[in-house]
Amino acid sequence: MAHTTEPTPVVRALYHDDDVLISAVKEIRAAGYKISEVYTPFPVHGLDKAMGLKETRIAMAAFMYGVLGLTVAVTLTWFMMISDWPQNIGGKPNLNWGMNMPAFVPILFELTVFFAAHLMVWTYLIINGLYPGADAQNPDPRTTDDYFMVELPAADGLVDVLKKSGAVEIAEA
């Protein structure tokens, strides 16, 4: 976070079409301006590439959470059924975890999925700053309907580039 006394003025340009938006993002970046944020009503395919965003690593996080879930399940079944209180239930082997493992497959699978799905979604909410009652992140309510907004720090000559790129409305704040 920049601790300046005066906030840097930002320019917000609204577009009314996703194809225009993509080409505008490319033009703006080609002209040497840095885009700080783009708000869209739906996932516009190719926008992340046009903006130069890195790929998300959330799928890798989900995999790690799944491994964690599997580990928890193995520990849980081993401790309860083999170590802490072994019982002969229905003649099924309980001497060691390996022999009893086939009966644990459903539990191992379910807990893997449970951990992967829930922890991934929690991660997703946290890194996006989403929580119940949070203030709307989009500065203009029209960007959840049919407008697309590009937000970038004010700079010389920027407005002309934006106008030329097809912006229907430009505001400085």
């Binding site: 944020e37 783009v38 708000y39 869209t40 009503p41 739906f42 996932p43 516009v44 926008l47 992340d48 903006m51 965003l53 790929e55 998300t56 959330i58 799928a59 989900a62 699978f109 999925v113 992967a116 799905a117 991934m120 979604v121 997703y124 909410l125 890194i127 996006n128 700053g129 989403l130 929580y131 119940p132 009652g133 949070a134 203030d135 709307a136 992140q137 989009n138 960007t143 959840t144």
Partner: peptide, 30 residues
């Protein structure tokens, strides 16, 4: 406002949204 968790449709959020949907679909299928 409470239900929407403050969603603003940022480009990065949408990118993650699509990845999360895909992974959840992959988990939900089996």
């Amino acid at each position: 406002k409470v239900l929407s968790f403050g969603w603003g449709g940022k480009a990065k959020a949408w990118q993650r949204f699509e990845e999360v949907s895909l992974v959840l679909a992959g988990l939900a299928t089996p």
